[in-house]
Amino acid sequence: MDKLIEKFQFYYDAILQNAPSFLIGVVVLFIGFAIANFGKKLTENRIKSKLQNTLSRLFIAQIISGIIKIITVVIFLDLVGFQNITTKILAGAGILTFVIGFAFKDIGENFLAGILLAFKSPFKENDLIETEKVIGYVKELRIRETIIKTTDGKDVFVPNSQIINSPLINYTIDGFLRNEFLLGLDYSSDLSKAIQVIIESVSKTEGVLLGGKKPAVIIDEFAASTINLKVLFWLDTFKSSSKSYHLGIRTQVMKNVLLALTENEFSLPSNIVEVKQYEG
Rank of each mutant, 00 (worst) to 15 (best):
D2E: 15
L4T: 11
Y11F: 08
Y12P: 00
Y12D: 07
A14S: 13
A14W: 06
A19H: 10
S21L: 06
S21C: 07
V26D: 04
G32A: 09
G39F: 08
K40D: 10
N45H: 08
N45R: 12
Q52M: 03
L55K: 01
R57K: 13
F59W: 11
I60Q: 10
L77C: 03
G81P: 08
G81D: 09
F82E: 02
T86D: 05
T87E: 12
T87I: 14
G94Q: 00
G94K: 00
G101R: 06
A103T: 09
K105A: 07
K105N: 03
G108Q: 00
N110C: 01
A113T: 07
T131I: 14
T131S: 13
T131C: 07
V134C: 00
L141I: 06
L141G: 09
I143M: 15
K149A: 06
T150K: 02
T151C: 03
N165Q: 09
L168V: 10
Y171W: 05
Y171S: 11
E180A: 11
D186I: 00
D186C: 05
D186K: 01
Y187W: 01
L191C: 01
I199C: 02
E200W: 06
S201G: 07
V202R: 00
L210G: 12
G211D: 15
G212Y: 09
K213E: 05
K213M: 12
A216R: 14
V217M: 08
I218L: 06
I218V: 13
E221Y: 07
A223Y: 14
A223F: 06
N228D: 05
F233A: 02
F238Q: 10
R250S: 03
V253H: 04
K255A: 06
K255M: 05
V257G: 07
L259H: 09
T262S: 12
E265G: 02
P269D: 03
